[in-house]
Design a protein around this nucleic acid. Structure first.
Lengths: 360, 360
DNA sequence: AACCCTTCTGTGTGCGGGCACGGTAATTGT
DNA sequence: ACAATTACCGTGCCCGCACACAGAAGGGTT
């Protein structure tokens, strides 16, 4: 490992100039077959690797990445992927990466399209976005294809062969995992519940997947008698109604001893339960948002499954850089770890979200 | 965000040459107070940030990092930090980092000292090591101080003001966490056991800390009746003896329903237990080594706590680079996350260990 | 042979910053 | 007052690579 091989070295050894080496390296053409094979052979022999530092310096160009995701005001969740992007940006800024964030309304497809229009007025080199609206996202993907804009999707999976990659969670698996966690705390004959506190949960694909995973988990133990019940509830912001729902549930299912909340709203229900019950029953929810963490610390919530939203944004940027700058191959489908978070390790994860800047 | 400020820009605005700016930037002296304040003011105004790409290119130097850790043949565990280092190296090689690994015998302090001698023959810029022998490590640390060699410690904590940082796990907290996990699966009146399968466990600080954490966890619930028992056992490689130990334990403690193994040897005991019992009782162990994972997949082990050894090596290198190259401040004490690993999320963590290369 | 294309190749400049060298201005000593 | 020293400053080259441009080599036409 004495020294890095330079373009100059292989030029000398191949008996050509650096210009020629450069041409074969970048496949610019205009090089005789004879010279080409010579250069390639020497490169192989010496094990040449491009010096990325010198390369980026000489390129002297900036890659513009546009981010397209829901604004924070409707749902604080989206702050997390965005903060991951910002953090990633910090670490790769020197490579000539710039990030232009655009926000749309979480529940308004028209606003999405409008924002897409804005972005396309001055087309970036790449787009990183959350395809929350299927149809409208296809429009965007089509536009990307036409204009040769690289793109990466996070959070919601949409099948698209041209995209560089998708980064997100595996909903089925997270439901399965939730099953395991509840099961660990339940005894024979008890009841486990799956509770969707969501509007229109019946056609939200990720909720369907979670339920399937959850049921499949318990399906592994046909000999055991743990009853699974499920309930959808839309009025989760009405405290009274939520309270009476819960009363009703416990009346109906006297041996109910575990609840799986399929989204980040576990805290809402917990706040409607009397302390005695909350401490006794097992509760599994999603996402390290502040309200959930508060209840995790009080042992009102037992487990939170962390889908690493910060990491999603971070890896979105990193993957683009790996492709654009480092010309590496990236995996098309990237599921992030499902971290199991309890009172005793939550601080590590919170800290990691804050710091994270691995390098550069 | 139009453009990065260059040294040239601030030179122009301050009415001096780039050489002068360079001098104040590197505090080389030989610059008049007047010029200095002017330059500093302009730098402040324009928010200058060194272009690390151009800088490393111009520096054209290599930082030599020596790694010093136990060989793999006595304990495969040590392969993991090392592989993390190699991975980190890949991502920072372009910054002129070279890594020189040295291995010593896990149980032989003399071999440690001998290796230290080798390393010091041609002193590197920095040393990354696991201080498994306290006294001998102090010798090394002293040598580092004298020769101005930066150093980072991983895995075992040794207090030393001159070291750049320590990266490792928090043993107390991991015991505490194990308590929580077992508790979740235990019922009133049952027994939880802490089992040290180790030679000389009574004076291994990390085991003491783990026990303290474990007991402190259950100490939080004085009203509950969960009995905690502890046992040390050194003959863990003798299958017969281990089997009869376990028989004895279950005979003594008929309501024993959970075991916490304080190191990576949970699999050894699991293999001595009859299937009926193994599936019933709750088991928590440490480390994602192959044998443990096999039992995790068969549901013989319920939880493995991952202390992120790969990450330890990785972050060791990264922290050195952050200091040497990027001149960032690094935190002196870095505890890595304690990941809770179950059958349902183990693959994510295994995959992360393999890939990991966050960027570059 | 003179000319023009086309294909190919070498040289030179610049990216931003580190650093050495030589030069100018200011200061000290005699 | 003048030389000798010191304090300060600007210029230019280099790091390894990307890319433009000029020019050479070869082939074909008149």
């Amino acid at each position: 490992m004495s020294r890095q091989i330079r373009i100059k070295d292989i030029a000398a050894k191949a008996g050509v100039s650096t210009g020629t080496v450069d041409r074969v390296l970048h496949e610019r053409g205009n090089v005789s077959p004879k010279a080409k094979v010579k250069v390639l052979k020497v490169m192989e022999e010496l094990g040449y690797e491009r010096n990325i530092i010198a390369s980026t310096l000489a390129y002297n160009r900036v890659f513009r990445i546009a981010a397209l995701l829901p604004g924070f005001h409707t749902d604080p969740y989206w702050e997390q992927p965005f903060s991951g992007m910002e953090r990633a940006l910090k670490t790769v800024r020197h490579y000539g990466i710039s990030l232009e964030p655009h926000f749309f309304e979480l529940f308004d497809p028209r606003s999405f399209l409008q924002t897409v229009g804005q972005v396309l007025e001055n087309p970036p080199d790449a787009i990183l976005f959350a395809p929350v609206f299927l149809k409208e996202s296809r429009t965007l993907l089509e536009a990307c294809r036409e204009n040769g804009i690289h793109n990466v999707m996070i959070n919601t999976y949409v099948d698209n062969p041209d995209s560089l990659c998708y980064i997100g969670q595996d909903s089925y698996q997270s439901g399965f995992l939730a099953g395991r966690l509840l099961h660990f705390g339940l005894n024979e004959g008890e009841t486990a519940m799956l509770l969707n506190l969501e509007v229109g949960s019946h056609n939200a694909q990720h909720l369907i997947d979670k339920e399937r995973g959850f049921r499949d988990y318990f399906g592994q133990f046909p000999g055991q008698h743990i009853e699974i019940v499920k309930r959808d509830f839309e009025d989760f912001d009405d405290r009274q109604k939520l309270t009476s729902l819960l009363d009703d549930l416990f009346a109906r299912h006297p041996r109910l001893n575990g609840i799986f909340f399929t989204n980040s709203r576990a805290y809402k229900a917990v706040e409607c339960l009397p302390a005695g019950i909350v401490q006794k029953i097992k509760i599994v929810g999603f996402d390290l948002i502040e309200q959930n963490i508060r209840h995790l610390r009080k042992n009102n919530i037992d487990f939170l499954i962390n889908q690493n939203p910060v990491h999603q944004g971070y890896m979105g940027i990193i993957n683009l850089v790996n492709h654009l700058v480092f010309k590496k191959n990236v995996e098309k489908l990237q599921y992030l770890p499902l971290d199991i978070v309890v009172n005793e390790n939550v601080d590590y994860y919170l800290k990691r979200q804050e710091e994270f800047e691995i390098v550069l």
